[in-house]
Nucleic acid binder design. Structure first.
Lengths: 142, 142
DNA sequence: ATAATAACGGATAATTTTGTCTTAAATTAA
DNA sequence: TTAATTTAAGACAAAATTATCCGTTATTAT
């Protein structure tokens, strides 16, 4: 597993929220959990974290829900870092605390470029861009 | 995290065992846990699994311990699959059960080649080859 | 104002992962 | 044969992750 379940939900939810934002609507937690096939209460907790870290926004009350202020300014890597931290892009594959260029694990030199590619992958598109084709069903969130 | 802690221990232990095997010695569990900086009892459990799956061998009693019958025939990917399964190389990055070429998640097409690279990385060297330079301290296991 | 709605926050529970301990079984050396 | 050593196996415990529930707070519509 590259990402924790929390983080998987966070990414899928963010993309869905961005897709709703793109059509000028907010998404409430039931709708989101339904759209991405996730447990509703747990997803709410995850979104709370994203909200605290200002990656998404929310409005309470009737017609409230979640939205994203600037979907082009939030990148998938931001979501990952907010939930799982930076480990995916920096931690040693074999779990060494001290792994580095000068004191490497056996896989260090080979894994390093792969981590960089992962970072690139999660950095190259904003949630706004990523969500662009959602309504055309070019990809799926559940 | 790419791998579970169990799997990280398993890989490091296997490489150490291979390094001992290369000098015609067996490694007992205390020595292994010490060499790789892992909790001894937990590591024993992990090695039990590898032993069950015939990736490593063991002998009980005085001067017993673990060794690897053919270090050139066991690949890191075998260790990973034995402990964590094949998910790292096949599961959807966003956690979709049904993710595939025809029903992809938003990242599917971009992540697919990365998974393939990961598989290549874990498949390209046996534990024997990987452990070759251990005694020269060209890399470290803790 | 009031009632309905929806996020927030905290407590709690279930599950999985990680880690420990103890006894049994096997092997070796003396 | 006996005692020492080392893995095997199982039960148990702790910690982290995942998941649920409920009362509170903010907001909106009526």
């Amino acid at each position: 597993m590259l990402l924790s379940k929390s983080c998987e939900y966070a990414i899928r939810a963010s993309i869905y929220i961005a897709a709703k934002t793109a059509v000028k609507k907010r998404a409430d937690i039931r709708e989101i959990a339904d759209a991405i096939g996730s447990p509703i209460s747990f997803t709410a907790k995850v979104l709370q974290k994203l909200s605290c870290k200002q990656l998404i926004s929310s409005v309470r009350g009737p017609n409230g829900g979640y939205y994203i202020k600037d979907p082009l300014a939030v990148y998938l890597v931001d979501i990952v870092r907010a939930i799982d931290g930076n480990d995916l892009f920096s931690a040693c594959a074999m779990g060494l605390q001290t792994c580095s260029d000068t004191k490497p694990c056996p896989m260090h030199h080979d894994i390093k470029p792969l981590r960089a590619q992962l970072l690139t992958e999660f950095s190259k598109a904003s949630v706004g861009e990523t969500s662009a084709d959602y309504w055309l069903e070019k990809y799926f969130l559940k």
